[in-house]
């Protein structure tokens, strides 16, 4: 019992747990739509393109959180605008903006000539989350989750059948922009926990694991949140007891859960044909 409670005797661990759970919930809820819309690469791109925003904010002593949000939203809208009406394929627009913005961030870092200052942005440090960071994360998480709840049926419809949505006056394009903005906000919260490089995993992996287990949207959303919560807790314990990177440990825990879900479904499907043959 003491083993379980010991890490959370420290305030920084309690803050880290709260931040991880908030971030995990937001990332995994949005992640379900990202996975269903096959936008996983987009999450990765938005995460990487926050780098110049973070660097500019750092150099000007602004709030890093705000710098990242501005860069992420600009990226998301830029990708949406470039690929609107299918003039340019979305993956091409992502490739152009992703590499351009990330390169800009690297050039800016090289001007500062201190890679170490930015390592916590690249790899995250949830153990260093301050109370002010926690308030920011809570506000963004609340905003994203509330919007998701309010437009859940419209997001679902434009994901499954955009033509029907459009035929009843629901613009699939506008819903896509909304999702991109939510994705940008979510990515920024993820950066606090696992950094620029690993944020996509927090969005995609729990949702992907849930999609292997169930084909009901409501259950998929619940399972994704459950997986991310379990990963956050397991990752923090591993980080505390083995002195390893908290962000890396959380993402690895997500990956292990995905592996278990994958194996479980493989075994389940291997058994199913025999049942079907019998009927």
């Amino acid at each position: 019992m003491n083993w379980l409670l010991e890490p959370f005797q420290y305030a920084f661990m309690r803050q880290a747990l709260l931040a991880s759970l908030l971030i995990g919930t937001t990332c995994s809820l949005l992640g379900v739509y990202v996975v269903l819309r096959r936008m996983a690469f987009l999450g990765d791109a938005v995460a990487h393109t926050t780098l110049p925003g973070l660097v500019i904010a750092y150099l000007n002593h602004w709030n890093l959180f705000v710098g990242a949000i501005v860069a992420a939203v600009i990226t998301a809208l830029g990708i949406g605008w470039l690929s609107r009406g299918k003039r340019l394929r979305e993956d091409t627009a992502i490739g152009v903006i992703f590499s351009g913005m990330f390169a800009l961030g690297i050039v800016m870092i090289s001007r500062v000539q201190s890679y170490r200052d930015f390592s916590h942005m690249l790899f995250g440090n949830v153990l260093g989350v301050t109370t002010a960071d926690l308030v920011g994360i809570a506000l963004v998480s609340f905003l994203v989750c509330t919007v998701l709840l309010l437009v859940n049926k419209e997001l679902m419809l434009t994901t499954v059948d955009p033509l029907h949505g459009q035929s009843i006056g629901l613009s699939a394009e506008r819903m896509r922009y909304l999702l991109l903005i939510l994705l940008a906000l979510t990515v920024v919260t993820g950066i606090q926990a696992v950094g620029v490089v690993l944020t996509t995993a927090l969005i995609v992996t729990p949702a992907a694991a849930a999609s292997l287990i169930t084909r009901r949207l409501d259950r998929m959303l619940l399972l994704a949140v459950l997986f991310s919560a379990c990963s956050s807790v397991a990752g923090l314990y591993a980080s505390y007891y083995y002195s390893i990177s908290s962000g890396g440990a959380i993402v690895l825990a997500c990956t292990v859960l995905f592996g278990v879900a994958y194996l479980a479904t493989r075994i389940h499907w291997r058994e199913l044909p025999a049942e079907h043959d019998a009927t």
Binding site: L36, K153, E154, M156, L157, T159, V160, D161, L163, H164, S167, I168, G169, L170, S211, T214, R215, R216, L217, M220
Partner: peptide, 26 residues
């Protein structure tokens, strides 16, 4: 408007009643 069946993503995590319910959204 009933599209051709190939226009829908039938692998989406919806039940038959979920999909039919989208007819009420308008």
């Amino acid at each position: 408007y009933l599209p051709q069946r190939t226009d829908l993503d039938w692998q989406s995590p919806l039940t038959v009643s979920d999909l039919v319910m989208t007819g009420r959204y308008v």
